[in-house]
Design a protein around this nucleic acid. Sequence first.
DNA 1: TGTACATCAGTGAACGCGCGTTCACTGATGTAC
DNA 2: TGTACATCAGTGAACGCGCGTTCACTGATGTAC
Lengths: 205, 205
Amino acid sequence: MSTYHHGDLRNALLDAVGEIIATEGLGAVSLRGAARRAGVSHSAPAHHFGDKTGLLTAFATEGFERFGTALAAAYAAAAPFGPAAQFAAIGRAYIEFAIEHRSYFEVMFRSELIDQGDPELHRASRDAFAVLTATVAGADPATFGGGDPLHAAIAAWGNVHGMATLWFNGAIQQFTDEHVLSIYDAVVERERARVSPPADGAATG
Amino acid sequence: MSTYHHGDLRNALLDAVGEIIATEGLGAVSLRGAARRAGVSHSAPAHHFGDKTGLLTAFATEGFERFGTALAAAYAAAAPFGPAAQFAAIGRAYIEFAIEHRSYFEVMFRSELIDQGDPELHRASRDAFAVLTATVAGADPATFGGGDPLHAAIAAWGNVHGMATLWFNGAIQQFTDEHVLSIYDAVVERERARVSPPADGAATG
DNA sequence: TGTACATCAGTGAACGCGCGTTCACTGATGTAC
DNA sequence: TGTACATCAGTGAACGCGCGTTCACTGATGTAC
């Protein structure tokens, strides 16, 4: 390959950030380290991202884009089963994303590390959360037990966000990722059984 | 005051860490910065904490101690109202602690920053979580909708942890801390109404 | 009550490190004519 | 088809910075006799 003109350095640097977070943690991310991993000089990243905040902002933006895609896919796939199922499905997709794309997740919600005023970031995060908004708006209020949908949405958001956070902060290290997901499934199932109790004496299973 | 022999440097340094996190963020914590704030030479902290990890570990330990005290107080205060009320009360205390003692909270669950093997830390965190364990063990399974208490406890833990995390990460910036607490109260109320539905025809609220 | 000595707590100089950032540069590529 | 030139992408030396850590030191305190 040619020495000059990497060809896809921007993406290579974003990939490098993901790898550094995965292997050494978020605190170990540096412009020089990303450049090292991508095999370019230490000043190359400035050309694409300006400064360190720019690099992390771009990384978070990419994360929100993938996040939005994942949520939208779950939303669409659950459509035949109704709004309540969609609500449960995006919650599960939320946790799955945090587990599968932990590096993105660790940066996306760190407002102090990224440039909140960046229009690309704003667009990507708005698009991702539009799926949540649509789910809440489309669902029967009974899904939330008749309370304020906004409150219920935030509580549900907190729930999945918290389970994901606890899991990868090592607070519930004794559980594998499948455990976390199965706990989520159990909670949803209990919730479902309450909203639409099985007719006449059938076990809730 | 005497130049030498601060008298209470250990505590002064821990206070300094709390102030730095509150004003400049966790990333700005350094041994030198804490020493500067406490008005001592930059090498003084090493005398009390060994290294940076030691300082943060001691800070987290102090956090878990206060956390445990807060949870235990909520647990005791709600005792007259029964296990379900205690369950709700420690959840609220959890969020309140995160809001009031944000600096501690930000460090306590960061396993990569602290020495997990430290016996003092271990004792303090175990004591704090013993309150949660006792609450779950003491509660009627119906409190959890009949599901596995452990799963329900983790889901509830995730819920309050997530609400607190989202709040102070700025994800739900538009809400004040009272908003967050009132949303929690609304969720608990809805839950309560389900477990013990009001007799005959009264609206669920 | 006074003296000698051990211990404790904090000092300040020094070190090496990786970092972010700047800047003049150079090699590679694309385009106008 | 070839030449001139502009632009783009990455280089490498240099800078200053705050940091963690070490270490010989010194001032203050406590204790034995």
